[in-house]
């Protein structure tokens, strides 16, 4: 399951990243580390980006990236 498939507001746990993203380091510094809890706060209309709460911070993620972050419900 990736971030695009989860319900807004429900907490999930980061499992892994799909290969070929090339920005693992950038994501990990934003708090997207395997095991961390995240939730989608809201998503922008017209297939816009997602606003995600991770480790007490709010991060805007484009859909292309969100699709590649694998998660599971708590």
């Amino acid at each position: 399951m990736n971030i695009l498939e989860i319900e807004n507001g429900r907490w999930v746990k980061v499992l892994d990243f799909q290969d070929g993203l090339g920005i693992e380091a950038q994501l990990s510094q934003m708090g997207f580390l395997p095991g961390n809890k995240i939730r989608v706060i809201r998503s922008a209309p017209f297939k816009g980006p997602l606003l995600i709460e991770v480790e007490g911070r709010e991060i805007v993620l484009g859909r292309g990236i969100a699709r590649k972050i694998l998660v599971e419900y708590l």
């Binding site: 709010e58 991060i59 292309g64």
Partner: peptide
Amino acid sequence: SPGLIIEM
């Protein structure tokens, strides 16, 4: 760039 990653 793969898309937005910015802190709100």
